[in-house]
Simulated assay, not measured.
Amino acid sequence: MSITKFETMKRFKKMYVFMMLLLVSAFTYGQETIKMTVKENKVPCQGVAPMECLEVKYDNGKDWELFYDHIEGFNFEKGNRYEIIVIRTKRQGIVPADASSYLYKLKSIVSTKPVTKANGIYNTKMILTRLNGKTINSKSVYMTIDPTTETISGKSGCNNFNAKYKKLNSKNGIQISAGAGTLMACNDAAMKVERDFLDAIKDKKYKIVKKKNVVQFKNSKNKTIMEFSIPTQNDLWSYIGKNDWKLISLENVGQDYGRASIKFNIAEKKVNGNSGCNNFFGSYTASGDNSIQFSNIASTRMACLNEEANKTEQKILSFLNDKKLRFDVADQTLNFYLDNKLVMMFGVAK
């Protein structure tokens, strides 16, 4: 029995549709579209090295979760709360141990809502300076109060912590609930400060008093139990300028990078350092939104015989070459971000 031209075309069409379905299935394997709410501030977290993470809620979730990955195409700006649609794709093949199992790509931004500060004490980093009448000089205990979620989070010295609070009827009165934290250990002195601080915020009621850049937590007898400072830009740059900074992590890979380092001359807005093999020098401009741009970067021209050191040098110089970066200081690290991805982390050189 002969096959008509019509039947041949019909079969060809069915085969074409089948092949297209196979191609679409191959391209979308392990892929899904999800809705995420992104909190307006990043928080300290521990990945391969200490870093800052976004906090997100998935779909209609109630609890904030740490987000360690990068969302391609999403430019996060501090102070804005986002609702976004993201395409999440399962990685194929062998996934490195320090990499995520998924790739994330922005599909659309549903909404962007600026979150304003109230009374100057919310959504801002506060560093503990006095506790139970004693001066605290370490700058390793700090916290941020989030009025939207009624949470307090930060670092208690050695560990990250998070606690709930509720507002009381009295003006600027709050009651802090018992919180949770990580369980890393450190030296005895730091652990004692941590225990005293956590005890001071556990199930306690306080009246908060702000005087310029100083925030005091007073008990029912009007005694100041905790005192915090809100760093100014001058404080921040004074701290950056007085220290030598040694590279400890590059593109989230923490290791010993030898001589790689950076030093700032605050008075002259100059910068110098070592990129792995060669010394470099140049200038920089910084703005109040914690952004920085390096310019006129030049370096010596010694041959780099070590392949790893050569790769390190190329990466460092590329980040310092007229790119606008964001920076922050957390504990004793100076961190630089490109498109909200942590690219360089420097620690205070001992």
Rank of each mutant, 00 (worst) to 15 (best):
M1H: 14
S2Q: 09
I3H: 01
M9R: 11
F12L: 14
K13L: 14
M20Y: 08
M20A: 14
I34Q: 13
M36W: 03
T37H: 01
C45H: 03
L54C: 07
E55D: 00
E55P: 01
V56S: 02
V56R: 00
V56D: 04
N60V: 00
W64K: 00
Y68K: 07
D69T: 07
E72V: 08
G73V: 01
F76Q: 06
R88Q: 15
R88I: 05
T89D: 12
I94P: 04
P96W: 06
D98K: 10
D98P: 03
S100A: 11
L106D: 12
S108P: 09
P114Q: 10
V115D: 03
T116P: 01
K117P: 02
K125S: 13
L128H: 08
G133I: 02
K134A: 14
T135G: 06
N137P: 01
N137G: 12
N137E: 13
V141Y: 00
Y142H: 11
M143W: 04
D146V: 06
P147K: 05
T148I: 15
G157T: 06
C158W: 01
N162L: 10
K164M: 11
N169M: 06
A180R: 12
G181A: 00
M184E: 03
D188L: 11
A190L: 06
F197L: 07
D199L: 11
D203Y: 12
Y206M: 04
K207Y: 09
V214S: 15
S220G: 00
S220Q: 08
K221F: 07
T224K: 07
T224N: 06
E227K: 11
F228H: 02
F228T: 10
T232P: 08
Q233R: 14
L236C: 07
N243I: 03
W245I: 09
W245N: 06
K246W: 00
S249F: 05
L250Q: 11
L250E: 12
V253W: 00
G254D: 01
N265W: 07
I266F: 12
A267W: 02
A267L: 13
G273S: 06
S275C: 05
S283C: 01
Y284N: 06
A286H: 09
A286E: 14
S287R: 10
S291C: 12
I292R: 08
S295R: 14
A298H: 09
T300M: 03
A303I: 10
K311Y: 05
L320K: 06
L320H: 09
D322Q: 15
K323I: 12
L325S: 07
R326Y: 09
R326T: 11
F336T: 14
Y337W: 07
N340I: 02
V343D: 03
V343Q: 05
M344T: 05
K350H: 10
